[in-house]
Amino acid sequence: MALLTAFARVLAKCTLQTYNGPWIFLSALVFFGELKASAETSPSPEYQVKAVFLFNFAQFVSWPRQTSEGPLVIGVLGEDPFGMYLDQTIRGEKVNDRPLVMQRFRRVTEIKACDVLFISRSENDRMDQTLGNLKGRSILTVSDAENFASRGGMIEFFTERNKIRMRINLDAVKEADLKISSKLLRVAEIAR
């Protein structure tokens, strides 16, 4: 302990009671500049925010009783724009005692258990077919493909003045027997 004390005191004296105080920050800057950022493969802020929205949807949506058992699955259909960010976002999280898990699907026919499904823009060409295939299942469909809500999807992300907006198709939500919290509806545009 005495050694530690002495060391700390010497360190503090050298760095602070001389002219050097602020230089620590410059050294730190240079030092950290050498290190590679941990987040080099992270997606753009747009998809960081969208990933966190998918996580929030799990909390703001209630599913019919019979499907709300086992882990809550957040799926991504098509090319995954999130990298590892969505995995990191939901790691270790639980909603109503259901652990969150992430699954990636290449085809809509692969989807067995799924609660929230993000449909990538890569699926744009076969969107109608995809949505038709999901009809009657209690899966919250989310996408940033154009006109997603008016084509029968449930939550559409769009960007307006550099900020993310949501458009919700309430009919599609009702048809799937889902309920969306007023907290979410309040801030979204309702598709007509």
């Binding site: 992270s42 802020p45 960081q48 925010v49 966190v52 960007t159 900020k163």
Partner: peptide
């Protein structure tokens, strides 16, 4: 590109998330 650790964004309310300038 800005990297917001997920923990940071998860603390935000829905309103605040919608207010994040994604550029």
């Amino acid at each position: 590109y800005a990297y917001h650790p997920p923990e940071e964004l998860k603390r935000l309310s829905v309103e605040q998330l919608l207010d994040v300038d994604v550029t």
